[in-house]
């Protein structure tokens, strides 16, 4: 059976990370299984963890009164989610719901946050890696916003 450090070592997110940092992060991690329908995170609740999905599908959702939950994006095997633990007020901004059985590594962001305050090199490394994920998600969101498959195209801008 693989150790937590082995599992993190194999993940591209942690590739090239200093061994001592990785060992510390592994110490903050634990395996969790969520059943279909379980909420892994809830909007406006404290965000003390982030997650590495080992298997399964997670829906990032926003609840709209009188309508229900809107799925903004789904995340899958090897995706990492949750960066609200990095920034005040450390609250989740969306719901995360297991669509099917999800096997995930739950990492203690609160513990890492405190460590990063004293070990700035590790803090910078983690921030760089999260910035990459945030950028990818932002690009994807921008593409969704463009609604490129829509039949209704905006008229050509005569100034272009």
């Amino acid at each position: 059976m693989k150790s937590m450090a082995d599992l993190l070592h194999e993940h591209p997110f942690f590739k090239g990370m200093d061994e001592s940092h990785l060992d510390f992060i592994a110490g903050c991690g634990e395996n969790h299984i969520y059943n279909a329908g379980d909420y892994i995170a809830r909007e406006n609740e404290p965000a003390d963890h982030f997650y590495l999905i080992r298997a399964g599908q997670v829906a990032v959702e926003c609840f709209v009164p009188n309508y229900g939950a809107i799925c903004l994006q789904t995340l899958h095997d090897n995706d990492i989610f949750g960066w609200s633990w990095l920034f005040p007020p450390y609250m989740w901004t969306f719901d995360a719901r297991a669509v099917d059985e999800v096997h995930a590594i739950r990492l203690d962001g609160k513990c890492l946050r405190e460590k990063c305050e004293t070990d700035t090199a590790m803090g910078a490394e983690l921030l760089k890696r999260f910035a990459r994920i945030v950028t990818q998600r932002l690009q994807a969101t921008r593409m969704q916003l463009m609604d490129i498959y829509s039949q209704q195209r905006p008229p050509l801008d005569p100034g272009q």
Partner: peptide, 10 residues
């Protein structure tokens, strides 16, 4: 819909 939500590049 039980499948993926998001853009194809992901």
């Amino acid at each position: 819909w039980r499948g993926r939500v998001g853009v194809i590049t992901q």
